[in-house]
């Protein structure tokens, strides 16, 4: 039995993938000798050497371009983009090249690669280093979107992502790096497209992702203890592919649903899920779907401002109570 932080599970997950498959290599900025700016890749250079753990210049387009080319010819690159906000400087390679080439080539070319990136707020880093950007990749056909909420999910989902024949964007949450978990076994695999139930309950369904899944779980515990409300918390784990069946089953049971998203409201994943729920579960619903999101603003930097912008445990609790009381 080992206690592992989310941060440690990242380097372990990469190491396990590299041990299993010699075609896997890892590239990023400050990832080798320095072990990554979040210390999530410590030890990889020592174990695998410079040929498989490559320190790159500040050249995100060239990093992902090279990863794509290597994947086209059968290697299995894992590339790090240090903060998800920097996906914007290499978005052509991701959205136009990596995502579309399989389709445009009529399936002649496969691009099995993983782009891992530190995502999300909570660190008071301001508007350009704190965004929650899963939605950007979710709207591009050809990309799979993964966002683990705990150490074991990092391990299991990384294993599946590296083995997946399609490109995966793997969003690690900065505010979860320090979180810990007791693990019996670290050699895990979790199929992409399988949601996880973090808390059982039949009064209402709360759907979250990454940090918001963990906050929803916390909220559900308090709701149960102090408010006698039993909420079922679904951690989506992956947005594409999406586990619609688990969502449907829960709504048939509860009839009430709240999505909790860290991103600003417009075009957030909760909107897509809300639309699916209306299509598939309309007759089961006891009320409209509620979306809890960051308001339609960039993230401010000052602690009091950031803390009051991103959905908090208290906000989730309040929204659930309102919903259950039918307000």
């Amino acid at each position: 039995m080992a206690q592992l932080t989310y941060r440690e599970s990242v380097s372990l997950a990469i190491a396990q993938a590299m041990r299993k498959d010699p075609k896997v290599f890892f590239i990023g900025e400050d990832v080798g000798a320095a072990g990554g700016v979040f210390k999530a890749t410590v030890g990889l250079l020592d174990e695998f050497g410079k040929e498989r753990v490559m320190d790159a210049p500040i050249s995100e387009q060239a990093i992902l371009g090279a990863a794509m080319g290597a994947a086209m010819t059968g290697l299995r690159p894992i590339a790090e983009i240090m903060f998800s906000d920097f996906l914007a400087v290499c978005w052509d390679i991701i959205a136009n090249q990596i995502a579309k080439t399989r389709y445009m080539s009529d399936g002649q070319i496969n691009i099995p690669l993983v782009i891992r990136t530190a995502n999300g707020g909570g660190s008071k880093f301001g508007a350009q280093h704190s965004q929650s950007l899963e939605n950007w990749s979710m709207m591009i056909p050809g990309l799979k979107v993964v966002a683990p909420s705990c150490a074991s999910d990092v391990l299991g989902l990384m294993d599946a992502s590296v083995k997946d024949p399609d490109p995966v964007i793997f969003y690690e949450h900065k505010s979860l790096y320090a979180s810990k978990e007791q693990l019996e076994n670290t050699n895990l695999s979790i199929p992409l497209g399988q949601a996880n139930i973090l808390h059982e309950g039949a009064d209402i369904t709360i759907i979250g992702l990454a940090l918001m899944a963990q906050r929803s779980k916390k909220a559900a515990q308090i709701l149960k203890e102090k408010h006698n409300i039993n909420a079922k918390v679904i951690d989506l784990r992956t947005l594409v592919p999406l586990d619609l069946q688990t969502i449907k089953r829960s709504i048939i049971e509860t009839g009430l649903v709240i999505t909790v998203e860290e991103n600003p409201r417009l075009c957030g994943w909760g909107a897509e899920i809300s639309s699916l729920i209306t299509e598939h579960c309309f007759s089961n619903l006891k009320g409209p779907v509620t979306r809890v999101t960051t308001p339609h603003v960039p993230l401010p930097s000052a602690d009091i401002l950031e803390d009051n912008t991103i959905p908090s445990v208290d906000l989730i609790i309040n929204e659930v109570i309102k919903k259950v009381k039918g307000e």
């Binding site: 301001g126 508007a127 000052a302």
Partner: peptide, 16 residues
């Protein structure tokens, strides 16, 4: 420090 007297009243922060 994220105070009101800051150049951008805490909205931008150290990096902006």
């Amino acid at each position: 420090m994220g105070r009101q007297c800051g150049l951008m009243k805490g909205k931008g922060g150290s990096m902006h």
